[in-house]
């Protein structure tokens, strides 16, 4: 269903925003230019995919 597709996109965006944002803040705090930001992005995507699986993958 289309709703599932769009909520998946939303989850990926949310995950990247939250954990990418946290990574970016840690970068600023520790003075790195881009170390925790990419790590945060990847972690965010991974967690978002867990959620996509939990919400939409199991029902079928």
């Amino acid at each position: 269903m289309d709703g599932a597709a769009w909520s998946s996109v939303g989850y990926l965006l949310s995950g990247m925003l939250i954990y990418g944002g946290i990574g970016w803040l840690i970068d600023r705090w520790t003075g790195h230019s881009a170390l925790f930001l990419p790590i945060g992005l990847v972690v965010g995507i991974a967690l978002a995919l867990v959620l996509v699986f939990v919400r939409h993958g199991r029902s079928s």
Partner: peptide, 13 residues
Amino acid sequence: IELLQGLITRPFT
């Protein structure tokens, strides 16, 4: 992630 998704990303997308 769920909170952001439910309150902001969902209506935004």
